[in-house]
Amino acid sequence: MLRVSYGELLAQLKQSFEALGYSLGEYESAATSVLSLELWGFGGLALLEAALPSLELHKQWAPAVTYESNALMLDCFQGSALFGLIPSMELIYVKARQHGVSRATLVNCTEPEFMLPLLMQVCQRGYYASFRWPSTEDPTRLRWVLLEGDVTGIRVDSKIWQASAPLEASVSIEVAQSDWDFSSDHSDPEGQGLSLQDHWGNTALQALFEERYMASVTIDPWLWSRLQDLGRRVLVPSTEASRSGAGAD
């Protein structure tokens, strides 16, 4: 395994996503999402590895957004939540600002975990967000996590969570000004799809994220090499003439 710094990984991800044809704003956010999930223990790099084949095959469309009042439906057309969802997420947030709470259903979405960093950005503006998805074991039950933005990482009911299995392709999102505004049919997520690591206070949680940030990232050399190969697509072949475009010897 290869160790890279967070900064090095971020720069490589940006360049690789740029090579896939995404715009500056999109690839910057996507790179940050992968990094954040890796930092928080949600396996951002593993999720990226799963998403890469389809991302390389075709540029992903932005989701189709339909809404009525503060209820939204986002169809990702079997695409990853890595790209194209920022405007939609912002719309969910704006609707919550207008109505106190807003709800969105995300369907046909691969790697919906990539929504979590976007939701955190909403939380950092003082909002609460919840994320629900159906349980494969018990279809009558929903798994549910509540996000608060008072630390720079995923915080779930004063606990920190780590993914143990990929999320389902269909998830529901709620954004609210207060946690009292959420729907009443929440299920207790404990033990459901996300493994509870421990109970953490804010200080300890901050220290944990800091500790992770201070360490370098371990990445499969094969994935690193693949990202580098992708990134090389933005480079321009060198010629004698082009060398003069950087200064004389």
């Binding site: 321009v236 072949p237 010629t239 082009s242 475009g245 950087a246």
Partner: peptide, 21 residues
């Protein structure tokens, strides 16, 4: 960015290749 160590370079749209990147 050039393939040579990703060195940033300046090109002229009228005559240099690479503007699409």
């Amino acid at each position: 960015r050039s393939e040579e160590k990703m060195e940033p370079r300046l090109g002229d749209r009228a005559c240099d290749a690479g503007a699409e990147r």
